[in-house]
Design a protein around this nucleic acid. Structure first.
Lengths: 219, 219
DNA sequence: TACGAATTCAAACAAACGTTTGATTGAATT
DNA sequence: AATTCAATCAAACGTTTGTTTGAATTCGTA
């Protein structure tokens, strides 16, 4: 296995360009050119452009969700031993920290934008990949939230999780937007600051009582 | 002015298709075909595809931001008369309600997805349009937040606003994601429920104290 | 060294893209 | 009735797209 074989080189370059210009906006020609390989390499190694897209995702999403579940495992184990429920803040950290931590990765910025594109992209095949990769995570964390906040129904917690995912995705995908908002005051590349503030914000959001219990669905 | 002249028909159809498949993913051929007009109509009426995109945005974003500012005006006026500062919840409502209210519009779903695409899209020209349309809104609301929450610095409020925008954009663009999260329990098309819950969540987030004041930037 | 499989390569493919053209229409103006 | 001009149309433009092909090359292994 060469240090920079064509296969991984393609994944790396595609990841960067997909993040920057989207999928339709990135042609196989610029990918292969920037990677310094032949145009036909994509179809040889991956079969098609769409399968390349899926591979780019799978390589990054899997490990992050794995880390989320590992952290949640450890939290629940520890809480179990101490005979208590996991604390909300611990659960939030397990959900938020692993993806944001990608900022420290060499291609962190691209990976994070890619993550948000995965959340946002509407294409059927991508949406299916999303469900595959996140079904277990969603289930486990909703469960954890419900134990930490038994006063809220499953559906209310889904709303809160919905908002949290949005805040995360936006913070990950559009760091420069924060620069614009704050007129240069804030530094979106500060990993720990981003994580801490996200958790602060979402923790309060999760704890917030719901105004109108009338239109609440069941759980 | 015919009831369905080519110009508005193109804007309507383009809006719908851009929202569903993105800009690169939507060809002029499918737009004109679905609109029942000639392929050349886009270049005749708008000059180019890119200018069509900009027109599609301008038509929707302008009025919403105008409503936001009107609501903020009224809130500040009323508070001024009563000799107090506007309340956080009022400000949040002025920022959140107008765009979410679009769900009641006939093409509400498309418009909302379009809004989020505007926030997310990285293309230079779109980003500039974003800044043009939002500069005043951002400035006015940051100011208002600062008066309502003087304990937080400008930069801390920017972080919070950053997260709020993410939660909004996600809730607007990906309502079906909430269906998935809640396994069908929640109804993302309930306008008032979405607004109320968003405000609840963000209100708490704004009020939340910041954990680590060390890495805080200045204001 | 020689063989077979894996990989890379230039070249070409059909299809789809945004855009332009020049003729044609149809309603308003003179 | 003649003129004008905005609007629409079919057709074609030159690129760019993802994909395929078949020969050339490289590599691991015997």
């Amino acid at each position: 296995m060469k240090p920079f074989d064509t296969h991984t080189k393609l994944l790396d370059v595609a990841e960067k360009l997909f993040a920057k210009n989207g999928f339709k906006g990135t042609s196989l020609r610029v990918i292969t050119q920037e990677a310094g390989v032949n145009l036909a390499a994509v179809n040889y190694h991956f079969g098609s452009k769409e399968r390349l897209i899926r591979e780019v995702f799978r390589r990054r999403v899997g490990p992050v969700n794995q880390r989320r579940l590992e952290k949640l495992d450890r939290i629940e184990e520890k809480a179990n031993i101490e005979g208590r429920n996991p604390e909300l803040r611990e659960i939030l950290d397990a959900f938020i920290e692993p993806p944001i931590q990608l900022m420290n990765h060499p291609s962190g910025k691209a990976i994070m934008r890619l993550f948000s594109r995965l959340i946002i992209e509407s294409k059927k095949e991508i949406a299916e990949l999303f469900i595959d990769q996140f079904a277990e995570v969603v289930e486990r964390f909703l469960q954890a939230f419900h134990r930490a906040l038994p006063q809220f129904s499953q559906s209310e917690l889904s709303w809160k999780m919905h908002f949290m995912i949005g805040a995360m995705a936006h913070a990950m995908a559009e760091p420069f937007r924060l620069k614009f908002l704050s007129q240069g005051l804030c530094d979106p590349s500060d990993v720990q600051a981003t994580i801490t503030r996200l958790i602060d914000f979402c923790q309060a959001g999760f704890l917030a009582p719901v105004s109108n219990p009338d239109s609440a669905e069941e759980a």
